[in-house]
Design a binder for these strands. Structure first.
Lengths: 201, 201
DNA sequence: ACCTGAACACCGTTCAAGT
DNA sequence: ACCTGAACACCGTTCAAGT
């Protein structure tokens, strides 16, 4: 057999990533495998390694696409430039909404861990930095007398906090604290943090 | 062959859990497998299923032990009953210290996910609830006029926040915000949240 | 009753062989 | 050059067979 040549390398990469994306969306990161991906696109295992160095690389690239989608939602949430206090809450709500509606794809970003010693590619880190900047911009407007360092620290604290609320909120494991929605907990975090942050400005 | 009978069921369970614990500590959750566990204790694969329903159950029980160890550290951090503002920071620092020194075991608690539909056993949830109560107790002392509901919400927000800081701090993925230590970010979160929380009390 | 070890249905990755 | 499919070294889980 061999030689199908129906797709260019780039096309093959594209359909493989799309197949991976829908597998993760349907069955979570654990439901993804090299054989399942190629099965969906009519190739055999070996072909995957023509386009990706490893399954980890395919997952990383799938996750980068999820980061792109997430960034679009966040940017859209503040596209009409509301006042910064409103904007920060809108960003948090958009993050939570994404986590709620795209749970498996969102989770996959954090579930995936590179083998010991390997480091995430720059393209990945840049996409994360871009998201942080959205938050920093609003914080800078909110507390104009703070140093860039303070703003960066606050952005990180707040973002980590909202993320933590989402992660623990979806883990039924840690649901133990009765009947509070992810949104309520996130609001508590934002309201109290921001009032402390602004007062000290 | 067969019939070794060197260990009671309870002993077998104990040495299996110990082997699992040290595998996770050394190689992370991904480095754990049924065959590796039994290999370390001189049994064959089948034996594991005499004592655990599945590998997931073994992991869950390993994680419960980690929760026990974590609880001990947290309780010890406030054993001398410092004033509540100090106690809350001590709890956060103890959590961070555990995450830093026992990273693979701590991570395993959150990396492990039950198959769709399965729910965490009560013994697990109780251990988590116990940790929450440590935080709630201090918050109640700090803001005595708040309702139990408010206290529970605040405990959850704060705890999620500190956890988020740890998770994103260890993910080199999201390190992108320059040179801030996990402790610094956590302090920012606590200081600002608590000042907002107390002012409104 | 306890334990083994083969069997089954999966993995990720490599690579000689075919077109 | 592209692609296959067998091979290798792993998985989790089950279960007939042995003591």
């Amino acid at each position: 057999m061999g030689r199908r040549n129906e797709h260019t390398r780039e096309e093959l990469r594209e359909i493989a990533l799309r197949a991976a994306e829908s597998l993760v969306a349907a069955q979570g990161l654990a439901g993804l495998s090299a054989r399942k991906v190629v099965g969906r696109i009519g190739y055999t295992v070996g072909s995957l390694y023509m386009v990706f160095r490893s399954l980890d690389e395919l997952i990383l690239q799938t996750n980068e696409r999820t980061l792109d989608a997430l960034y679009e939602k966040l940017a859209a949430a503040v596209a009409d430039r509301p006042p910064p206090g409103v904007a920060i809450r809108a960003l948090a709500r958009a993050y939570i909404a994404f986590a709620l509606t795209e749970t498996p794809r969102w989770l996959a970003i954090y579930q995936h861990r590179l083998p010991e010693g390997q480091i995430v590619p720059d393209s990945f880190s840049e996409k994360v930095a871009r998201m942080f900047e959205l938050v920093q911009r609003e914080l800078a407007l909110l507390a104009p007398r703070r140093s860039p360092d303070d703003i960066a620290l606050a952005a990180r604290a707040l973002w980590s906090g909202v993320h933590g609320v989402c992660i623990l909120g979806f883990d039924r494991k840690l649901e133990s604290v009765g009947g509070r929605s992810v949104e309520q907990v996130a609001d508590s975090l934002l309201d109290n943090y921001l009032s402390g942050f602004i007062d000290a400005d």
